[in-house]
Design a protein around this nucleic acid. Structure first.
Length: 218
DNA sequence: GCGACAG
DNA sequence: ATCTTGTCGC
């Protein structure tokens, strides 16, 4: 008999993204710096057959890690640009749910609304959990922009289909810029200062940097 | 048809 | 994302 998994219906997944994108809220759910911030990132083991997600909870003021969690799952889908969230979200949500306390904001490695259909992994995670979220991409998926200045903090708007979907941020001198976009319940204007406030001398903001260490390296 | 394309 | 050590430059 055939024990293989049925072929994923990519057209269905894309339609699901359009439906969920309609639920994204780009209005700030809080003011100032949240007391607890979570960072989420995903890596792979065994040549890609195992998906490994990490979630780290940090104190929003000191940026010190309070707790961390790991989740492993058999990889269900291949990597397809634009459909990344369906591949990484199952494990990422599991890791996030293992944290002892819910964060007031989640920073995810990947894009927010800077996506072909407005639902990058950070936006997808935000809509499913109801939590405010921000996407931190390390390279461009969609949008046009001017190269930001060389100083830490220099930035320029990321434009897509006639509107601003995020920012391109020089988080560290001599390093490639970061692509910052809101996920859910955070405004385009506020996602930038929130990420800048989490920078601690590295290219990636602390939440995502710490989650990356657990999901990939160590 | 051709080029682009998160992790 | 992952396979992989040392090495050049700031």
């Amino acid at each position: 008999m055939d024990t293989s998994t049925p072929a994923p219906d990519y057209a269905r997944l894309r339609q699901q993204q359009r439906d969920l994108a309609a639920q994204v809220e780009l209005v700030d759910a809080f003011q100032g710096l949240p007391g607890r911030i979570a960072g989420v990132d995903t890596g792979f083991e065994e040549g890609g057959s195992i998906t490994r997600s990490a979630a780290v909870l940090l104190d929003g003021q000191s940026l010190q890690p309070l707790h961390s969690a790991l989740a492993r799952r058999p990889t269900a889908l291949p990597y397809i640009p634009g459909l990344l969230s369906f591949r990484e979200l199952p494990a990422a949500l599991e890791a996030l749910a293992q944290l002892p306390a819910p964060p007031a904001l989640v920073m995810v490695d990947g894009h927010g609304i800077a996506h072909p259909r407005g639902l990058g992994i950070a936006a997808h995670l935000g809509v499913l959990t109801g939590l405010p979220s921000i996407g931190i991409g390390k390279s461009r998926l969609v949008g046009d922009y001017e190269e930001p200045g060389p100083q830490r903090g220099d930035h320029s708007p990321l434009l897509f289909k006639g509107r601003q979907v995020g920012w391109v941020l020089r988080s560290k001198p001599r390093c490639k810029p970061l692509f910052v976009s809101p996920g859910h319940r955070v405004s385009v204007a506020q996602c930038l200062p929130l990420v800048v406030a989490c920078l601690a001398g590295y290219r990636l903001p602390e939440p995502t940097r710490l989650a990356d260490r657990l999901a990939s390296r160590r």
